[in-house]
């Protein structure tokens, strides 16, 4: 199944690339958003905050602290943004109805859409990482691995995002997504260390996917790497794989009746 799924899903990737050629600006917005956060919060607010303790307790500039978190969030947002297009393609454009009447199956749709979301996430990550390194917020050669890490984060959220999009009934339902996405962005140790929370809340935050994404990328960009990053990687891999699987089943259930 999977041996033929990969090249077939690639046709859907090609379709998305063509469809986006005319509006590449949307892709740029995914790059500017984290940059604006970095400049306003990291540099502006950071002026008053001063130094904060990094993952190993060493004091670092506030901008260096939040830059990795913004990268992780950008990868998440990019992937989720794409998944909302899946909703539109499925419900209004009936794209997958035509795709499924060709040799492609639900798994090819899930793989094709996920890989496109990944590609977009990768573009954001490259642009953002280049910028922050120019601004001097990269502190270790491990930061090179932040790129594949961002890709992994994109995978985790793309799979789940596409799965989620298949449950949406109307555009209003996307408000629920915001309700999950925004608090996760604000509270997953993005803007301050986990240590500000009481013990039980730390455990809750550690279980969220974005916390794992931030923890992984922050470790790599600051050069504080340990076994814990491996846990993050496994978490994100599993989260994404479950998402792709759910997405495949949902597409099949909804369209192959």
């Amino acid at each position: 199944m999977t041996t033929i799924a990969l090249p077939r899903g690639a046709a859907l990737f090609e379709r998305n690339a063509r469809a986006h050629r005319s509006h590449f600006l949307i892709i740029f917005s995914g790059f500017f958003e984290p940059l604006f956060y970095l400049l306003s919060m990291g540099v502006g607010l950071g002026h008053f905050v001063g130094k904060v303790p990094g993952p190993n307790g060493e004091l670092i500039s506030y901008a260096s602290f939040i830059a990795p978190a913004l990268l992780a969030t950008a990868a998440m947002n990019g992937a989720i943004y794409d998944s909302s297009s899946v909703f539109w393609k499925m419900k209004y454009m009936k794209l997958y109805d035509s795709v499924l009447s060709t040799p492609l199956g639900p798994i090819d749709v899930a793989v094709g859409e996920t890989s496109w979301a990944l590609f977009r996430g990768l573009l954001y990550a490259i642009a953002f990482l280049t910028t922050v390194s120019v601004l001097g917020h990269v502190h270790s050669a491990w930061a090179v691995l932040a790129l594949p890490a961002a890709l992994l984060v994109g995978f985790a959220f793309a799979g789940m995002g596409i799965a989620g999009a298949t449950f949406m009934r109307t555009w209003q339902d996307f408000e629920f997504l915001n309700l999950v996405q925004l608090p996760m962005f604000l509270f997953s140790a993005t803007f301050y260390p986990l240590s500000v929370y009481p013990g039980w809340l730390q455990v809750v935050v550690r279980c969220t996917p974005l916390y794992n994404a931030i923890s992984l990328i922050r470790g790599l960009m600051l050069g504080v790497v340990g076994w814990y990053q491996l846990v993050n990687v496994l978490y994100l891999l599993l989260f994404g794989a479950i998402g792709v699987r759910i997405a495949e089943r949902r597409v099949g259930k909804l369209l192959l009746r």
């Binding site: 454009m93 794209l95 009447s101």
Partner: peptide, 17 residues
């Protein structure tokens, strides 16, 4: 499906292409 041509009842053309 590889050997079929399908003209569905509702148009399912790709509006972004």
């Amino acid at each position: 499906r590889a050997q079929l041509g399908v003209v569905p009842q509702e148009d399912t053309l790709d509006l972004e292409l």
